[in-house]
């Protein structure tokens, strides 16, 4: 099975160290390209003017918010079913990154909303769902660190992540329903798939850049967690010796 190949932390570290420089390079290139295309090449929108450029940091952040949560749920399932040693680390290392992206999606959304809607916050279905997702992230991070035994925290967080993941579509559906009941359907919507290529390319470049950025941080954080685990093992060795 493919997972077994990464089960050994030493092998994982070897692999991580090998691909890290490439990932860092690719991240830099993609983000630089995305920024250049988004800020200088892409045209202003005929309705929204230059405020549409917020899209190039907002939409990738929102993508990452969902993507990272999905990854956490997958890692949690792997952790609970196969008791894979790296899965817990991957889930816990992902959570703060995902929370940061979700926060960015919310704040940039708000900064986009102010010139478009005239207010900083609308209880729009998407914004509300992302806000709830942010709370799910915070809960996950809180329970991870709530136990004296980090292993217990990781397992509890894994169960919570799976329960949360089952709930995400239900929350999305219920918020959509609630929103159509309470809100006139005149809120601004993004262009959808009919987006102009000059706007699509910077968006894709930034999306890829954000994804690579996440991969780099994830590898570094897992590495750091592995060393942390060794340090804890050394502590218990010292206690045994004493």
């Amino acid at each position: 099975m493919i997972l077994d190949r990464f089960a050994n932390p030493a092998r994982f570290l070897r692999l991580a160290n090998a691909i890290l420089p490439w990932c860092v390079g690719a991240t830099t290139i993609m983000l630089a390209a995305g920024l250049y295309l988004g800020l200088f090449v892409a045209p202003p929108d005929y309705q929204q003017g230059d405020s549409v450029r917020i899209m190039y940091v907002h939409v990738p952040a929102a993508w990452m918010a969902m993507f990272v949560y999905t990854n956490i749920a997958i890692a949690s399932a792997v952790s609970l079913i196969w008791r894979h040693p790296l899965a817990d680390l991957a889930a816990n290392a992902s959570a703060p990154i995902g929370a940061a992206f979700t926060f960015l999606a919310l704040v940039t959304g708000s900064l986009w909303g102010k010139p478009m809607w005239g207010t900083w916050w609308v209880w729009d279905a998407r914004l509300t769902s992302v806000l709830i997702l942010f709370f799910l992230y915070l809960g996950h991070m809180a329970i991870t660190s709530a136990f004296d035994n980090p292993a217990r925290g990781a397992k509890a967080a894994a169960v919570l992540a799976l329960v949360g993941f089952v709930n995400v579509p239900i929350i999305k559906f219920s918020v959509d329903w609630w929103n159509t009941l309470h809100q006139p359907a005149s809120v601004f919507r993004m262009g959808g798939p009919s987006i102009h290529p000059d706007m699509l390319w910077p968006l894709l470049a930034m999306g890829l850049g954000y994804t690579l950025f996440y991969v780099v941080l994830l590898l570094l954080r897992i590495k750091s967690e592995l060393i942390g685990a060794r340090l804890r093992a050394l502590d218990s060795l010292r206690q045994d010796a004493a």
Binding site: I132, G139, A142, I143, L160, G164, N167, I171, S174, W177
Partner: peptide, 16 residues
């Protein structure tokens, strides 16, 4: 901790 974990999951029930 419990409210932090549970309240977001209560939202669909609240809405309907």
């Amino acid at each position: 901790l419990i409210p932090l974990l549970v309240l977001p999951l209560y939202i669909p029930t609240l809405i309907f």
